[in-house]
Simulated assay, not measured.
Amino acid sequence: MLLPASLRTLACRPLSTSAPLAAARKGTRERKKAKIVKKEEVKTEWVPQSVRRAQLLSLQPRANRRFDRERLPEPIDDVYVRNWFRWREHAVEEAVAMHRQTHHPTVFNQPEALMFVTAELDMQLDKKTRYADPVRRVVSLPHPFEYRPPREVAVFCQSAELRQLAESRGVAVVGGTELIKQFQSGAMAADQFDYFVGHPELAQELLPIRGLLRRRFPSIKDGTLTTELEATIDRFRHGLELSSERDERQLDFAQVVAPVGRLHMPAEHVAANVAALVADLASARPRGHTRPFVTRLTSWCHPAPERLDLQLRPLLEEAAQA
């Protein structure tokens, strides 16, 4: 006897009796949902490849930038591998002659090129955890040369005689209390000038504009508050600016790069400028620093790649005796 199609499908289906037995216990699903913690996607900013490469290089160890001359032997021949032997030190006059050869019209054809000097400084104080502040100075060279236009200097003085003296040295802005009021009212902007020189007779009157001038405020420590206006004006208008650049990864190392003359100048004049620069840097040695402040001196002229070591010890001894 054949059954209807609807009954045949029901008869073929197996009966499930395990559903009540396999049911989860009460609260299982809630506990599993509570364990699931959604991870928040942190969006990272895009970093350029050049910045990423610089970050990777900063993590790599770096060799000591200070050259230890004493660990290398003296060369026994005129031709030697420079990295294996102690470098020869030249007198300034000899270095000028060697730079003139490379900048001869038949070579680089720059007979009037600027001659630069790089001075390495020891910035670590006697206490190993402390370092000297950056060096910022202006030095008067005994033999000036054309390098850059004169700087803008404002002079604060009261008497008519001092004002006439300042104007004779090429200062465009000279004044007393009326000039101070112009800075206070905003009629005169401090950004128009590179340096400010003042006479001690206006020391009290200058205090209201101390916040406007900030680091350029005339002070005895910087040599900008003085009675010798003529020499001070010439130094800050035509002098050579010295600024040290510290290595952020080697805090005890810093260097000063400055021009000392041109190759067509007499070699004696260039040597006198180098001696004045070294003497000024040696006098900038801070308190708590008993070792030599200037550790190495090299000269170079663009575009020649060579760098010549200069004899530093005689210059330091001359500066100590002066």
Rank of each mutant, 00 (worst) to 15 (best):
E248K: 15
L2S: 09
R136V: 10
Q321K: 06
F293T: 11
L2M: 12
R313I: 14
L213C: 02
F236V: 14
V135L: 15
R29V: 13
N109L: 00
A319Y: 05
S159N: 09
H269V: 01
A34W: 13
E230T: 13
A272D: 12
D247T: 02
A54E: 11
S58E: 13
F236S: 02
Q110A: 03
F108N: 05
L316Q: 14
P200I: 14
A154H: 03
L59T: 08
A279Q: 07
E40Y: 06
Q60K: 14
L206H: 07
V174C: 03
P305R: 13
T298F: 12
A271D: 01
A267Y: 06
T17Q: 13
F293H: 12
L56P: 04
V174W: 01
V257N: 11
R210T: 05
L141W: 01
G186Q: 06
M265V: 05
A267T: 08
A63D: 08
P314D: 06
R29S: 15
V174A: 05
Q110F: 03
Q164L: 08
K26S: 14
T106I: 01
L263A: 04
R296T: 10
A166H: 06
W84F: 03
M115L: 14
L281V: 10
V138S: 05
E245F: 04
F116L: 02
W84L: 10
L141G: 00
R216C: 10
C301H: 04
V47G: 04
V278T: 11
T118L: 00
P200F: 12
D78K: 10
A5Y: 12
F67M: 09
T44S: 13
P218D: 07
P292G: 13
R86I: 06
R100H: 08
Q124F: 06
W46R: 11
D68T: 11
A187I: 02
R214Q: 08
P4I: 01
A320V: 04
P14F: 06
L207I: 15
E306H: 09
G239T: 10
D280S: 13
F193L: 04
R13Y: 10
Q255I: 01
A282I: 08
R163A: 14
A11W: 05
V155K: 03
